[in-house]
């Protein structure tokens, strides 16, 4: 569909139509992916292979970033709280901010740039080198063979990575707050335990990370599948994956937070 694009009124209309068209195509794409994920269930090895690439290989960056974010929270939280003489609430501050917000969001942003971009590039290149068409020629559905396992691997690994990020962050906050600065250990943990609710805080964080995992993998897979089959097209698609995923994560986070914690 070659509509002339420029800085004219016609161009604005063309862009609008184009983006709505892409959104519709993306929705059809994810629906087909979910419908044809039977192969992934019958052959779990396909998903396990993708879990290795999306999950295991993202472990280092997730754990290290979690540790550093937690340690920074420890310093900043202590610096502010000690003005009010309530540095014993440091555990609450670190744990709640990690479990509710930073864990799911930061892990998803890192996941998008680490695993999402790789997925886009892989599928985009498969398309550019006509591997996907070759599969179709051999009566192998590329969606169920290539796309669906990656999708499920992303959705499964995201909450696990976010949980690890949060746990590592709490440990980082503990290292700085208790071990280095010397906040009382008992009140650090006891106040944290009495303030953090399993249903309200931890489960909501897990739900957030599942939604982010869904969104990020969807965007990455679609951008890869829809990429123009050229070197330039694949590189543009990879960039778009990271940008769109990051925006989607932050916007979804706002919506989910308003939905979960905004109510009376």
């Amino acid at each position: 569909m070659a509509i002339h694009k420029g800085f004219s009124i016609r161009g604005i209309g063309a862009r609008t139509i184009d983006s709505v068209l892409r959104l519709g195509y993306a929705t059809r794409f994810i629906a087909r992916t979910i419908m044809s994920s039977g192969t992934s269930l019958r052959r779990p090895r396909l998903v396990i292979r993708e879990l290795y690439f999306t999950g295991v290989l993202s472990l280092i960056i997730i754990l290290v970033s979690g540790l550093f974010v937690g340690m920074v929270l420890g310093y900043q939280g202590y610096y502010t709280l000690q003005t009010y003489g309530s540095e014993s609430a440091l555990g609450v501050l670190v744990a709640l901010s990690l479990v509710r917000e930073l864990g799911p969001v930061m892990a998803a942003l890192l996941f998008a740039s680490r695993a999402g971009s790789a997925m886009t590039a892989e599928i985009g290149l498969m398309k550019a080198t006509e591997q996907l068409s070759a599969m179709e020629m051999m009566a192998v559905d590329p969606i169920s063979r290539v796309v669906a396992p990656r999708f499920w691997a992303g959705v499964i690994s995201m909450p696990l990575l976010a949980a690890m990020f949060s746990a590592m962050g709490v440990f980082g906050g503990y290292l700085v707050g208790v071990v280095q600065i010397g906040v009382d250990e008992g009140s650090f943990w006891s106040q944290m335990q009495s303030a953090v609710d399993f249903q309200k805080d931890i489960m909501n964080g897990v739900i957030k990370s599942i939604v982010f995992g869904f969104a990020v993998t969807w965007i990455s897979l679609f951008e890869g599948y829809d990429a123009p089959p050229t070197a330039e097209g694949v590189s543009g698609a990879t960039t778009r994956t990271v940008v769109t995923s990051s925006l989607a994560i932050l916007a979804l986070d706002f919506l989910l937070t308003a939905f979960m914690f905004g109510g009376v």
């Binding site: 396990i48 879990l51 290795y52 999950g55 295991v56 472990l59 744990a95 479990v99 690994s157 909450p159 696990l160 990575l161 949980a163 690890m164 949060s166 746990a167 590592m168 709490v170 440990f171 503990y174 943990w189 944290m192 335990q193 953090v196 399993f198 931890i202 897990v206």
Partner: peptide
């Protein structure tokens, strides 16, 4: 992958018990 899934579930448990 087994280690990864176990570590993830372990982290969830740690969070659930709030360390």
């Amino acid at each position: 992958v087994g280690i990864f899934v176990m570590a993830g579930i372990g982290a969830l448990l740690v969070l659930a018990m709030k360390v």
